[in-house]
Write a protein that binds this DNA or RNA. Structure first.
Lengths: 180, 180
DNA sequence: CGGCGTTTTGAGAGAGCTCAACATCGGTGG
DNA sequence: CCACCGATGTTGAGCTCTCTCAAAACGCCG
């Protein structure tokens, strides 16, 4: 889910060093200087922003093949925390190297930009879906985009994607089962 | 508002042809072949997606300085409609030229990618804000991001940005006035 | 003045959130 | 094997909040 695709970053991160993170460990924190770009190889990580009012917002749920905090490529400082959800392995590439490669390899820059554009599309769509007041509409719109309900055991992830509580999603699902 | 900033596309669209659109006119429609990239010079336009279930989702509210449907640069066909909200003037640049320029001018590609990355950030944040159940929290989070309440007469735009009805926003505002 | 759009406030209904109880399933260890 | 445990799924009841429909005050402009 949140299937922002592959994006072939192999050549970009081909020789990048690997680093492992333990569950709950921070990949970086808000305020840290940005020294490298991070591509998740395995596991999941969340980008968390604290609003100061006790609100905790998850800006990105990154999985394998995704780059964390893409905008950090143009920022000297992180604006959010990144924490590992379970054990993670990540490819770490110096930001300077990253940007030099984009500058010298137009096809890599194109792939990178294409990935960003699709991420924009996906995020805008998610925002629209979450502005629908009824759970039925959110699920309907989400499924209409080609998304599929995952196996049992991962339904809560869908609830998080839709921005509703698990109970609300469970009820909607059983409602649909009853109606066919 | 929705202030995704400048992004200096002047050089990219410097010699692009200008075209005017009447209120309600379509800049393009879903299914149309993508032949050019469009930069809004003045006026506002909305990207609308119809889900087939009668749901009408506004994926992007574009203003001056913004490029419409960034992902169309890599797609042969539009996936949504774009309609002018009021009179619009837009710079229109052949998609082939657009991509050639990005390929041959690394600094332009960098600017383009930076703009996309910031759009991703903004869209993700908007999605998070809209997943908050209470209007008070949405407004609070939105203001905490440095956004300011516009002049009277434009408050409905804020309601749309937050994904709530105008009434709900008005009530929250008067609640805050009473509380200070 | 007379529209027209925005702002404001009210009342009711609907829907989700919260809290809670319980079933189910998979894995762990006695 | 079975008891236990945690996480997920399921359902219920009540509260709160938003949405919807409605009415009216306000401001702007022809």
């Amino acid at each position: 889910m949140i299937a922002i695709m592959s994006g072939n970053f192999e050549r970009l991160f081909a020789d990048a060093g690997l680093r492992d993170f333990a569950p709950g460990e921070a990949l970086f924190r808000a305020g840290d200087a940005v020294v490298s770009m991070i591509l998740l190889r395995s596991g999941h990580a969340e980008l968390v922003r604290h609003t100061g009012h006790g609100l905790r917002m998850i800006l990105q749920r990154a999985g394998p093949g995704q780059v964390l905090a893409e905008a950090s490529a143009w920022s000297d400082v992180y604006h959010c925390d990144a924490v590992a959800r379970g054990p993670c392995r990540a490819a770490v590439l110096s930001r300077r190297t990253f940007r030099m490669r984009l500058k010298s390899a137009p096809d890599l820059a194109d792939t990178w930009a294409k990935n960003l554009a699709q991420a924009v599309q996906a995020a805008r769509l998610r925002a629209e879906i979450r502005s629908l007041p009824r759970v039925a509409d959110r699920l309907g719109a989400w499924l209409a985009e080609g998304n599929r309900l995952p196996d049992k055991g991962r339904w809560q992830e869908v609830a998080a994607e839709l921005g509703v509580t698990r109970e609300a999603l469970y009820r909607e699902l059983s409602r649909r089962r009853r109606a066919g």
